[in-house]
Simulated scan of single mutants.
Amino acid sequence: MTNVTIVTGGSRGIGAATARRLAAAGHHIAIGYHHDHHAAKAVLADIHATGRRGIAVPADTRDPDQVQQLFDAAADLGPLTGLVNNAGITSPIGPFTDLRVDDLRRVVDVNLIGYVLCAQQAARRMTRGGAIVNISSAAATLGSPGEYIHYAAVKAATDTLTIGLAKELAPRGIRVNAVAPGIIRTDIHAVSGVPDRADSAAGRIPLGRAGEPDEIAATIAFLLGPDASYTTGAVVRIAGGL
């Protein structure tokens, strides 16, 4: 059976690294992305260079109609076997009392509502042997005080979504797991107003450095693969000791 995997937020960071790694491992890939057409085309070119099929679909995962369009487009590659729920956003770092309601709603809508909508589509379409990987965060258990407690709370909800859905889908032979990265060297930190956070935070990471997107992608690929056939409901922390 040919693997067909959707990677949301697949034009950059962890999503792009995952799309490239999975294509090299033999997956046909549908990447969902929000707005960066140039970056999406670059990832798509790398997918095609492996000899695998790929498509790039602009999709706002907050919108159920656009989510359905992404999954419908992916069906052209074959029956869906994998979903990497990765599209995510932070908001400006700062004290909890300064949190703006529009930032709160955006973080909840993208990081939770979007995950639920995508997981729902995947659950409707997948058959035995399918697998979902949700991208959580070490923040879910650290709480991120003074930074973005609301983001940490949403990622804790991602862990709960993973555990509950794993139990519900297990009788159908569909596995659901999560990875919980720590501070990873991607451009997501620019959105939080601290573009050099991967370097400035290195001193509080036990391993003494930020992680790289490929280090997260490797675990995602494992969780989607046959070596993880008895793994479901797990949240794998990849945070350098945090």
Rank of each mutant, 00 (worst) to 15 (best):
P79Y: 01
A49P: 02
S144D: 11
A24L: 06
T219E: 14
V235E: 00
I188H: 15
V57I: 10
D227F: 08
R12L: 09
A234S: 14
T8N: 05
T231M: 07
A131N: 02
G241S: 07
V116G: 12
P64H: 12
T231K: 04
G9Q: 07
G182I: 00
E212P: 03
L207Q: 05
L142G: 02
N111S: 04
I135G: 02
I216C: 06
R124E: 08
R172H: 15
R52C: 15
V7T: 13
R125I: 08
A17W: 03
D187A: 11
L224W: 02
P213S: 14
Y151V: 00
A190M: 06
D214C: 11
G129Y: 04
K41F: 07
G54K: 10
A45E: 10
R21P: 09
A131F: 01
D103W: 07
H189M: 12
T158Q: 09
G9H: 07
G51H: 14
V154C: 04
T186H: 03
A139Y: 06
F222Y: 15
T141H: 09
L165I: 00
A218E: 08
R106E: 09
V7W: 06
G10L: 00
G130L: 00
G143H: 03
I29W: 15
I184M: 02
H34A: 11
R204L: 09
G225V: 01
A25E: 09
L112N: 04
S229W: 11
R124K: 07
A87Y: 10
E168M: 10
T162Y: 03
T231G: 07
E168W: 10
